[in-house]
Design a protein around this nucleic acid. Structure first.
Lengths: 214, 214
DNA sequence: GTCTATACACTGATAGAC
DNA sequence: GTCTATCAGTGTATAGAC
């Protein structure tokens, strides 16, 4: 009865090829934008014939949507640290650390996201209006409790979140500019640590974060 | 002798048409990216036949380069406030105000710039390595004098600049996301003022900016 | 300087043999 | 599930009349 093993091996082939294609697509979409990316180039980077891409993903747009959705969920997961924290020093500090790590390890994803937003979110507008909106209001509420408990100054929570997003994602989205200003060299470990510490320090000081009510 | 007036009026026609085309191109490049933008759409927005675009700008890339260069010079001019300031409260404060104003009044330009950088600056890499690098080192030196004079804490000047760029440009580049989280409404005057004040307050507090040495 | 018509290249997508 | 060959559509750019 070869049906079962054949089914399983086909599933594995499918999983592996989809992963290959999605990784290649993320890279190519980040470097060329949606319009500049070609299915041919994605196929070349993935090491597959172009026709196979259309076998796994019906259209270029469907492939792009998968890429953006995957990135979106990475972002959301990065805030797990936020929720169980005692206050802003732990919570925001860990969140900034996590987001800086993603900017370092996953810059292509950040760029695809930025590009999608800049073009007025033609593909994931529905996510913005549901998942992101809910997620944001939840975190705003957490920040408000920190303010109410006297653990930071009364800063507008939305703008504080925007500042964290902007600053951390900048190291991915504008990485090329930063690299150019760093004499053409990517950051080494020490420079990443310095970046992370500086960002955390300015923001936490800027909201006057403290461990207990004064 | 009709040569002179004819030459002048041709110059005026050229200036006006080039301006029309450049404004339309900035809008279209911002909304669709370089690859997604079409000469046809730019022509429609400018209200001119497509062939006329090729009369004034030889290629799509030449038109794009003009758009990016114009934005780049707007950015550089925004730092005039920086130079003659007494210290970080005046200098950085005015610079942040100016950059927030540009994000508000000129969001398309900011997006085209962001897109160009995210794609590794295929068109204006030479500017990054000369003009931007020099400009940045000059401002880093100014910040360092503020630190040396005890007017702010010893914060890495490069990362401080990156934070200002990231935070202010975020309101243009990610304006659509912010608008979605603002119940689909663009910021009104009060909300822009609140954004500006929050950004300035957190950053100036974050570096412990002060009017005189303590 | 303007504009219609068109050449030429390229891209996304599919058909159909293996 | 793979891959070659190909189609239909679109885009940049230009030629040439006005």
């Amino acid at each position: 009865m070869p049906a079962v093993p054949r089914t399983i091996s086909k599933k594995i082939i499918r999983q592996e090829n989809e992963k290959l294609i999605l990784e290649a697509a993320e890279k190519v979409f980040a470097e060329a934008g949606f319009g500049g990316a070609t299915m041919q180039l994605i196929a070349d980077v993935a090491g597959l014939p172009k026709a196979n891409l259309h076998y796994y993903f019906p259209t270029k747009e469907a492939l792009y949507r998968q890429v953006v959705e995957s990135i979106f969920h990475d972002w959301l997961d990065a805030a797990a640290y936020f929720d169980d924290a005692e206050g802003p020093i732990d919570g925001l500090g860990a969140y900034i650390d996590a987001k800086m790590e993603i900017s370092r390890s996953h810059p292509a994803g950040s760029k695809v996201w930025a590009s999608e937003i800049m073009h007025r979110a033609p593909v994931i507008q529905d996510y913005l209006e549901t998942t992101l909106r809910d997620w944001t209001e939840d975190r705003v509420a957490v920040i408000q409790t920190w303010i109410d408990r006297g653990l930071m100054d009364p800063v507008d929570p939305h703008h504080l979140l925007y500042m964290v997003w902007a600053t951390t994602q900048h190291y991915a989205d504008f990485g090329h500019q930063i690299e150019t200003l760093n004499n053409g060299q990517p950051f080494d470990d020490d420079q990443w640590k310095r970046a992370k510490d500086t960002v955390k320090s300015i923001i936490l000081r800027g909201i006057n974060a403290r461990a207990r009510r004064v």
